[in-house]
Simulated scan of single mutants.
Amino acid sequence: MTGFILACAAMLTAAALWLLVPLWRPSAAAPAAAAASAASSDATVGTPPAHERLIAGIVVGLLPILAILMYASLSQWDWRGVQEAEQHTAKMDDLLQQLEQKLAQNPSDIQGWLLLGRSHTGMGHYRRAVDAYQRAYELSQGRNVEALVGLGEALVLSDETTLANRARVLFEEALRLAPDHPKALWYGSIAALQADELRLGRDRLQRLLAQNPPDELRGVIERQIQSLDQQLDAVP
């Protein structure tokens, strides 16, 4: 937003100078006759009269104000929302920095690494989320379900091809430790379907549906199960 405002200010300034400078600069091509007729006056050769220059200055001065008022009344841009979003991002960055400093002092804090991973995932910093979850995974020796699922999800979000290899291994291990983990079931079902394991993918979706997901997700799951049932019925 700051860059946009600066750009607008620069363009308004350029427009004002483009209009104002010619009005105040003497004309080098003024006819000799005009110079003779103006000799009796105090006007500068080729320079518009003082009242015209005053009017031009007022008009040019009002241009930026008029432009700002028109933009504020006609624009649909949510300035307050943008400002609040920037403030929230700055606050989150500050909190993450504090958390990273605490983890530097206590690098064996598994819950701290999990919190850092969740925060980076929520902010879209997927590669940094992978690093944080990897630390939690190593500290727990691969036995922490949240570290397994979080690491798998961060890997998929940063590179979806990992769902066919390492990320799937992580989700499978998470389901072995927690068979009803909703996120592991979701990603595990997608991985199974991508590998043409239709029945396994369908069973996992059915277990996820039994957990009473939100209505939007329920509709997606039900349609997918129905489609899989039709495909499985068609198999000899």
Rank of each mutant, 00 (worst) to 15 (best):
V130L: 09
R135V: 09
I110A: 01
Q83E: 12
A104G: 11
G117S: 06
E84A: 14
G81K: 04
L103W: 06
L163W: 00
L163I: 15
R143M: 11
L139W: 07
L116K: 02
Q134R: 12
A164L: 15
K102Q: 13
G142Y: 04
L99P: 01
R166K: 12
T162Q: 13
I110F: 04
L66C: 05
L66Y: 02
L114D: 04
S158L: 05
G142Q: 06
K91P: 00
I68D: 01
A132R: 02
V145Y: 05
L115R: 12
G122L: 12
S119I: 12
Y133C: 03
A72C: 08
G150C: 10
L103G: 10
Q76F: 10
R166P: 02
E84P: 07
Q105W: 03
L63S: 00
V145L: 09
H125A: 13
V149S: 02
L63W: 00
G122F: 09
V82K: 13
V145F: 07
E160A: 11
G81H: 08
Q105I: 08
S73C: 10
A56L: 10
A164T: 14
E146M: 08
L157E: 05
D93T: 13
L74G: 06
S75N: 08
W79H: 09
R118E: 15
Q83V: 15
L74C: 01
S158W: 04
I68M: 08
G124A: 11
S108I: 10
G81V: 08
T161C: 01
G117H: 00
A132S: 12
Y137I: 00
L148C: 02
A90W: 08
V59R: 02
Q101W: 10
I65D: 02
W77A: 09
S140W: 05
L155Q: 07
R128Q: 15
I110R: 11
S108H: 13
S73H: 10
W77P: 03
K102V: 07
Y133T: 06
